[in-house]
Simulated assay, not measured.
Amino acid sequence: MSRLPRPFVFPLMLLFGGGCLSAGTAHATTLRLSTWNLDWLTTRPAGDRALPDDVHPRDGTDIARLARYAARLHPDIAALEEVDTPELATRLFPAPGYRILISGDDVVQKTALAVRAGLIVTRHPDVRALDVYPPDAPRHLRSGLDVTVGDGRASLRVLVVHLKAGCRDGGPDDRRPACRTLYRQVAALTDWIMERQDEGEPFAIMGDFNHMLGPGDVMLPMLSENGPLLAPTVGVASPCWGGAYFIDHIVLGDQARQWLRPDSLRVMLYREDDPALQSRLSDHCPVSVGLDMP
C-alpha cells in the first residue's frame, strides 16, 4: 500500500450563500457544481434484505434536516451518490426548482443528478461499463450517470460516479480485491474520457471516487493519459468530520479546465457536532466548485 504525505487541511467552512445561476460576464454563465454522497439515503425499513445490518434508514426528521442543508448548498448542478429513489432526491431538491435524474441500476446506492430549472438537459445511456462485475454476480457496482447540461450557448458533459470502496490509496499493483476492481473501473473511465476528448466536449466527472488523489498517487495520471485533467481537490484535505484527503472529487477536462473559478473550491460542513448524528446526516460533506461557462 502506498503512503501519502500528511495532507494539508483546506480551511473551508460553510459554502457561499446567495444565488448561484448568474451572468458572470455579458456572455458567461456562472455555475456552481456540487457533489454529495448522502450515505445510504433510503427509507426502506431496517432489516430489508437490500440493506447492511449497520445501515439506519432515514425518517422524516432526517430528510428535513438534509433538505435544509441542500437549500443552503443551492447548487446549479449537484451530483448525488447513494440515493435509493428519485422521490427521495426530490425531497432535498424539490420541483419546480430542480429536475432529478437517477441511474437505472438495480441497487440501493444509485447515482443521481439534481439540475436547476432553466438549464437544458440531455440524458445519455448510463455508463454500465463501470459495473465490472460479471452478470451473475450476487451484487453489482454502480453505473455512471451521463448527462449533458447547457444554457443554450455552451454545454458541459457531466458523469456522476461512485467507484468501488476499499482502495483509498492503493495503486494498480495492489493485490487487494477492491483495488483490482477499482482499477478495472479506471480503465472504463479512461475510455469515456478519451471519447469526450476526441469529440472536443468540455466535461466534468463528479462523485465519490473512494480514492485519495493525493501527491504521488497514480490514478489521476492514468485518467489523464489522453489529455490533461484538473482536479481542485488534489493535495489538500477536506475539513469534513475531522479532515483527510478528499475522496469526493470534481475532475474537469477539455475546455472546462479553463472555466474553473480560481479558489472556488468549497466544502459545506454540518453544524451538528454530535458523532451520533453522522449516521443521520452523512459521512460525506458536499464539495463544490464554481465554473464560468462562456
Rank of each mutant, 00 (worst) to 15 (best):
V9M: 09
L15W: 07
F16Q: 10
G18N: 13
L21A: 11
G24I: 13
A28W: 06
A28K: 09
L33K: 00
W36E: 00
L38N: 06
D39N: 14
D39T: 09
W40P: 04
L41C: 03
T42W: 04
R44S: 05
A46K: 12
A46C: 08
D48I: 09
A50R: 13
L51S: 08
P52D: 11
G60E: 14
T61K: 09
T61Q: 15
I63K: 14
I63E: 12
A64F: 10
A67R: 11
A71N: 13
R72L: 15
R72F: 12
H74A: 15
D84I: 10
T85C: 10
R91Q: 15
L92C: 14
L92H: 11
F93P: 02
P94W: 00
L101V: 01
S103M: 03
T111W: 03
L113D: 04
L113R: 01
A114F: 09
V115G: 01
H124M: 09
Y133A: 03
P138F: 13
H140K: 15
L141G: 14
V149Y: 07
G150Y: 13
A154Y: 09
H162C: 04
R168S: 10
D173A: 12
D174N: 04
C179Q: 10
C179K: 12
T181Y: 13
Q185H: 05
V186M: 10
V186W: 01
L189A: 07
D191W: 03
M194L: 14
M194I: 11
E199A: 15
G200F: 10
P202G: 08
G207D: 04
F209K: 03
M212T: 05
M212Q: 08
M219K: 01
M222L: 15
M222D: 07
S224E: 07
G227V: 07
P228F: 11
L229G: 10
A231E: 02
A237Q: 05
P239Y: 09
I247W: 00
D254F: 01
W259T: 00
L260V: 13
R261C: 07
R261S: 05
R266G: 04
Y270G: 02
Y270W: 14
E272K: 07
D274G: 02
L277N: 06
S279Q: 13
S279W: 05
S282G: 07
P286M: 06
S288G: 05
V289Q: 01
G290V: 07
G290L: 15
G290I: 08
P294F: 10
P294H: 13
